[in-house]
Amino acid sequence: MAKEFGRNARVSSQMQKELSFILQRDIDDSRLGFITINEVVVTKDLAVAKVYVTVLNVDEQGKRANVKVLNELAPVIRHQLAKRMRLRHISELRFYYDDSFDTGMRVAELLSDLDKPIDSDQDKQDEG
């Protein structure tokens, strides 16, 4: 039976914290916007880490550009990560855009539109 909070989960959690710190403090690239690390998913053998990010205040093309830059900078980021984490082998980093935030905002918009009353009664009074 697997442990409730196994090694993969601990490594993922620590990697998320360290990557956030590295992107905030160590990586100084003007091409990058305001990036948030949403989740890190590490394979069982810790060989690959899928890093899910969101970028605020950019359009679709800007999101793709930021992810491309992050993947280009992945070796540099991985080197910084190796300095900060006590692991014999640091996972290969692969960055992906996490659209769950955008989807959540769209759902919230749709739900708020449902809350707005339909002004058909008001229109009828204005006509009469």
Rank of each mutant, 00 (worst) to 15 (best):
K116R: 11
D26L: 11
K50C: 01
F5E: 13
E127D: 15
N38C: 08
V69C: 10
G6F: 02
A108L: 13
G33I: 05
S12M: 10
S20A: 12
Q122T: 10
V11G: 01
V69P: 05
S20Y: 00
E18C: 12
S100I: 09
V11F: 05
R88I: 05
V67R: 07
K124D: 10
Q16T: 15
F34K: 06
V107H: 13
V53W: 00
I35S: 04
R84H: 06
F95D: 02
I77Q: 02
E4M: 07
E72V: 09
P75K: 03
D59V: 03
R7S: 00
V67G: 12
E18M: 13
L81M: 08
R106S: 12
N57M: 12
V11M: 06
I90C: 03
L111R: 03
K124W: 07
A65I: 05
R88T: 02
N38T: 08
E109T: 05
V107S: 08
V55G: 02
L70I: 07
D123A: 14
V40N: 06
P117M: 08
N57W: 09
L73T: 06
S13N: 15
D98M: 11
Q61A: 13
S91D: 04
I90T: 09
K3S: 13
L32R: 02
D102I: 15
M1Q: 11
H89C: 03
T103V: 13
D121W: 06
Y96E: 10
A47H: 14
R84Y: 01
L32N: 01
R84F: 01
I118K: 12
A2M: 05
K124C: 10
I90H: 02
L23W: 00
V11Q: 07
D98A: 11
G128F: 14
V67F: 08
